[in-house]
Design a protein around this nucleic acid. Structure first.
Lengths: 201, 201, 201, 201
DNA sequence: CATGAATGAGATTTCATTCAT
DNA sequence: GATGAATGAAATCTCATTCAT
């Protein structure tokens, strides 16, 4: 069966993950019932458990997926920059990539933003650790930008990272945004956070 | 019988609201059981219903309280400024007031941040409408600041407001912060969002 | 309210315990659903949980009750013997008391016999420890009887105890026995286990 | 194709029966899931159903096996006695054979003891009927022994049979016993139940 | 022969809510 | 004002069973 990439099970899993992201985004962890998730994936409640042993396992995988997705987008955006690009270009490309990842598949993005908080079970804690690596990545970007005075350089980079991610994540609302609106937001974020008027895009 | 009379009922109500803020902040709306709230207020579950008809009513009042608290703090901070103060001073005073309100009674602040999202029942919708007035207030401040070019002036003030509030609210974490740390955050926020280096405090 | 001995809650508790003993006796621990128990106590499933936090807690209390009941009967029977009674009289009185306790409220007895085995949760383990004290009590009786050569004296008293209790407990079947039939069984047990022809009753 | 052919299917069947005996002995009928049984037989849950149509069918066959095993051992032990052997020798040989059968493959023995009780479905009822024939066999032995006054002769042989089997079956605990310990138990049982001091072995 | 995927019923448990006292 | 007792709905999870491949 080659890579095991398109078996029936794999397709069902994807349907479940999509439905779960949708529901978690709309109603949060505790507000989402697995029956809703199953229905959204055209499945019976019992059948969910063939694919995920636990609600915590399911949400953990949703979170991990979303983080991986955003991370890949940011990495790709940066790698596509011309090699002569300065830290201003790097950071604004990252901002644009993060925002587009967040809004493009809005369910995954909103799910992370709503759920990541505080769901104490073990698998979710693991996903949170995964997400922390994402934050660390951003902190590195911020530090580099501070060296070139691209962003405020006299302040704690950790705080600055929190503010930037907080500002961006706050833009994910209840309904999908058109791509050009996401671009507008990206420009605004850069306009605020970047000292130079490096207009992205 | 005046308004805020200190009867037993009123004191109990306050205890309930405090406990509810604590629990909602820690566990979210769906994650909090009314039994926990009651226990935290040294009460039996049944007794809650003498004071609040519904879980939604209770959370709505918690939210309204928190919004009113922040609104009062911001208004007061602004009114205490010398009459010659410019928009930069006004905005940075508001930032400081908002952040202090958020962290000072962290439970209320975190409760708003965690719960406001999307709890669809009617009373919560009312509280959300109440909160929208708070956002509008901030939008007004932003617009005035844009006139003086104190903040980015070429961008949509609504988006800018969302970014600012999003950034500030993202700083409320799981544990209380010492006041001086809150001040540091306030300085950072102003440093980022205000074009002039108007240091608050 | 005096002793709290006859409140509504206490009466409901008794009804639950009776129903639980009945069901556990008939269907075993895993075979019994709490819905059946609730129905047998004229209660809704949810209401059970006001009185017992857990299925394990419930069964543990049933077991403890049954052991306490048998222990009390055996103690009382022995204490009512004339002070000149020898070990033969003591042992045969105990046999009679145990068998009558077992069959008199058959549900409790059968519940112990069927469930005590192996239900691994913590509260049941506690109940099992409680039951072990009962076995120890019998072992003491057996040892005394061995001293007087009332029962086989050349054998391990622990094994002898197991055989005696095993033989007696095997007599609890699916339906209630008339008291005179229980007496017949008691006579038979004594006839087998006691070396002297000490006829009980 | 003869009868006990050693095809793959037959070997798998044996593995299933062994695993089932183990699980039923450890957790009882309702406490055992077919998935556990399958796993213990290195099989998938679905594959079980190729060999057994129903959980009840499976447990029935386990019970029948165990009864047949014990019956064969008892019969063989008796048939190996010298033809001049009296009823005392016969009974004590039977006791030894039963106890060894019970403890030798402890899983089967314990499975019978734990499960035989009351699993109301039809196939189990059939197995219980099968077991009743085993009890009847013992009752016959007891009656013969009563004729020779080898055991208590003035008592109901049915009751005496129950006591004897109950005593012996009570010795099967949670862990396997060394053979010499089983011999000790057999001696004790004979010492108690047989009027003459016919020491077995 | 065996497996993977799905189903539907039922189990324990939690919880918002009600109401007599 | 407060409590204790009860209810009914819903949630997570387990399990015997089926069937296409």
């Amino acid at each position: 069966m080659a890579d095991g990439l398109d078996t029936k099970a794999v397709r069902t899993r994807q349907r479940i993950l999509a439905s779960a992201a949708r529901e978690f985004a709309a109603r949060g962890f505790d507000g989402t019932s697995l029956r809703q998730v199953a229905a959204g994936a055209d499945l019976t409640l019992g059948s969910l458990y063939f694919h995920f042993a636990t609600k915590a396992d399911l949400v953990a995988e949703v979170l991990r997926d979303a983080v991986d997705f955003a991370l890949a987008r940011v990495d790709q955006a940066i790698s596509e920059l011309p090699s002569a690009a300065g830290n201003a270009e790097v950071l604004s490309a990252a901002v644009r990539a993060h925002l587009h990842a967040l809004h493009e598949s809005r369910d995954r993005g909103a799910a992370v933003v709503r759920v990541m908080d505080r769901a104490s079970t073990a698998p979710v804690a693991a996903a949170r650790a995964h997400a922390r690596r994402y934050i660390t990545r951003w902190c590195t970007l911020i530090k580099s930008a501070q060296c070139d005075n691209v962003v405020s350089s006299g302040v704690d980079p950790r705080i600055l990272t929190d503010l930037l991610l907080g500002a961006m994540n706050a833009t994910v609302g209840s309904r999908q945004l058109a791509p050009h609106r996401v671009d507008t937001i990206a420009v605004t974020v850069c306009d605020v956070f970047l000292r130079t008027a490096a207009s992205p895009g």
